[in-house]
Amino acid sequence: MNKSITPVLDVLGKTIIGKSEQLKLALTCLLSNGHLLIEDLPGMGKTSLSHALASAFGLAYSRIQFTSDLLPADMLGANIFDVQKQQFSFHPGPIFNEVVLADEINRASPKTQSALLEAMEERQVSLDGTTHTLPQPFFVIATQNPMHQAGTYPLPESQLDRFLMRITLGYPNWEAERTMLKRSGTTSGVMASSQPVSKQQLIAWQQEITQVHSANAIIDYILRLVSYSRESGEFANPLSPRASKAILVSARAWAWLHGRDHVIPEDVQEVFTAVAEHRLRGSATDSDMNSQFSGKLMAAVDPLAA
């Protein structure tokens, strides 16, 4: 484990108990400058995870609850006529924060969804001909309730591709839930006050991660995985070039997180389900939470050269 990142993980681990794997993945996602999709039932700690991530790095945080009548302007902001100055001035919406939690993203209309996704991709907002740059770092955590899909707009495949990772939290185990219950009521105060690293440190780390070495053998392994998904005919939604890039980027961050300066196939395998599963699965409605597609793909491709 990378020594500099352990304090952050410790703090997060105190807030979200018994979910160290998911925490590491979420952190990887943040470190590789991507966006995160959390799929889970309500009450699993999605909100507290995102809040904890934001406060761990001292990032500005906002939460947008997506509903069917949420309009793009409600999220992005609007030009409002300033009576005193006799001109329009821009009032930024809640998206102008460093960590944005888009709660229940599948409840909003496709228009609003695509407005958010566009902002995520471009890292800027265009309104009435003016472009407003979003803050740096910019990290969107979207959540989606896989159950109770009636009357919702599931994200189409093309949009799912924009999330670097998808994770599920799942129920905590007995021990973890007991600890949580014992501590309930006192947590939030403790967490908010302690801020182990700064925003600048985060950006520096993000820079550092791009320098992690990935050998040709790793690149070939990723290419073999990707091309198998395209050529075997077993996958309805083969992996796109964006996906292969995502795999490499998050494997690098994962390797850095584990204190290595180079990527090994284990890194690729460990992030693979989070990165590839939602892309392979597509918008299929019968979403079971497991990793059937990515597992199948990993089992079919040998990480050592063929």
């Binding site: 090994i264 196939p265 284990e266 395998q269 990993m298 089992a299 079919a300 491709v301 040998d302 990480p303 050592l304 050269a305």
Partner: peptide
């Protein structure tokens, strides 16, 4: 080197009876 590693892994597979499958080396 991959060849030598694979040969060694084959020895281990034979001894332990655990197939390597597509596990990477350290796993």
């Amino acid at each position: 080197l991959t060849m030598i590693y694979q040969k060694s892994a084959d020895l281990v597979v034979e001894f332990t009876g655990t197939p390597r499958g597509h596990l990477p080396p350290s796993h």
